[in-house]
Amino acid sequence: MSTEMKRRIFLKRSLAAGTVGVAAAAGILAPQQILAAWNKEAFESKELSGALNALLGSSETAESADIKVKAPDIAENGAVVPVTVETAMEGVESIAIIASNNPVPLVANFVMGPGAAGFVSTRIKMGKTGDVVGVVKAGGKLHSAKKEVKVTIGGCGG
């Protein structure tokens, strides 16, 4: 376990050092016309507040009991963690799923059309134990709910 931990720390550091190069390469390779809508800043942000600011214009969320984040208590395999975010709120504009301890915390953002219900379900990767946060934008405000998931084997490194 201890070597595993050391490896993780090493990986993390090398990841941080390599980020600038990777970001530059991605900029050259990405066909900008197609991906103009993809929020690069938000999805490459290492900080949760930075990601939320870039994505939704604010990082202030109000905790809400109307949102249910469904995820396992213990995830044996961090590479596949099923997550469902559900809310009964009216006028849901978007639902973001965040794994707060991941190298890139913002996992997904679902922009809901006019007829869509406040429900999304997907499977995410989690590097280590942490909170899964669901951020719902409804009526111009941000609401959030979270659930802690314990990860036995991380799914972000190699």
Binding site: V107, G113, V120
Partner: peptide, 13 residues
């Protein structure tokens, strides 16, 4: 008409 549009990072399985 678009009913759902998702943007993902590499954090999706």
């Amino acid at each position: 008409s678009t009913v759902m549009m998702a943007e993902w990072s590499g954090g999706v399985s």
